[in-house]
Design a protein around this nucleic acid. Structure first.
Lengths: 173, 173
DNA sequence: GCCGGATAGTTTGGTACCGAACGAATGGCG
DNA sequence: CGCCATTCGTTCGGTACCAAACTATCCGGC
């Protein structure tokens, strides 16, 4: 019968570990609903990243972070390092190394800005653009597969709920 | 007006980057709903982990993974390495190093099984138990804060939707 | 008994990632 | 002009993490 989560104790369907947690700690005044949301977000993200790197990105010698950089540059075009780091949700120090890797692979290029020589812009090379145009459809198909247990409405709902967690706290570094 | 996601084009509220993606790629046949779910899961997870390590775990010199190990051992008690790795969602090789770190910190201990000397069990020391009993309430408060924009019903809904993504594909290593 | 395949954990080699410290460049204010 | 606080990107030291190679142990068949 489709009546999940119908009371305030234990929802009908839980992962095995969620049940065990209630069994162990259920008598203590913890916030189990928050616990399950947060830990499920993390588990889902880890599964997504692992599968993506193994099943999609490795074919193109891209890491998750490398793919993200290409993707961001593809959507937004040339960006300076600081904005790119923020958009990729990476520390700027991390970005430096990953851009260097992509640069060696010939997928992006750096350029110092003439107006302010501290700043550096990063942009896709032609090869980088070809790569992301080839990889992204495969990646998007992977995303669809990964979320195939949800229908469209549920995906939007989930995206919206997550958005409200993300927007609450988002100072990357 | 509270009518989010009311049509099949662009939902009312989106993150800035979500809007930009539609603007750039909206005319191509990609699955944007899947894209947004997956990328929001990942962004949320990254924000959660970063904040947790900075604001909660660093006070106890614990990494995210180290905390997870203590937590799992606290809930389930003594475990052998392979099960512990699966439960913590880590590759077994990764676990070896992190258990060694925790062992040096005096928080867990290893023991070879008498019946099968290949196997090793890991359990909390008294100090480890004290640590997790002290850290977890702070961590749980953090989880509550992190998800404070959702009410109880929404947390359960989100946890359930995520569960359906997790259960679809979960062979960690 | 012992040999060979299977299995549990560890080691190894490499990337990713962070935070903090650093060095170059800038721009305002004297 | 010339200092100096600020703001860039990079570098550095350290952990975390994975996949694959390796080691030790176990167990079934001869």
């Amino acid at each position: 019968m489709p009546t999940p989560n119908h009371n305030e104790t234990v929802p009908d369907e839980m992962l095995a570990n969620e049940r065990d947690i209630r069994a162990k700690l259920g008598d203590r005044p913890f916030d189990f609903d928050s616990l399950h949301v947060i830990s499920n977000i993390y588990r889902a993200a880890a599964a997504i990243r692992r599968r993506a790197e193994r099943e999609v990105l490795s074919d193109y010698s891209l890491s998750w972070g490398g793919f993200t950089i290409l993707w961001v540059l593809w959507i937004w075009g040339e960006m300076e390092t600081a904005n790119l780091a923020a958009e990729c949700d990476l520390a700027k120090g991390t970005l430096t190394g990953m851009v260097s890797t992509l640069e060696q692979q010939g997928l992006v290029e750096r350029e110092r800005m003439a107006s302010d020589r501290r700043r550096v812009t990063v942009s896709l090379t032609d090869e980088g653009r070809n790569t992301i145009e080839e990889v992204f459809p495969a990646f998007n198909a992977f995303e669809a597969d990964m979320s195939a247990n949800l229908d469209t409405e549920e995906k939007r709902l989930a995206a919206g709920l997550l958005r409200r967690i993300i927007t609450r706290h988002d100072e990357p570094s």
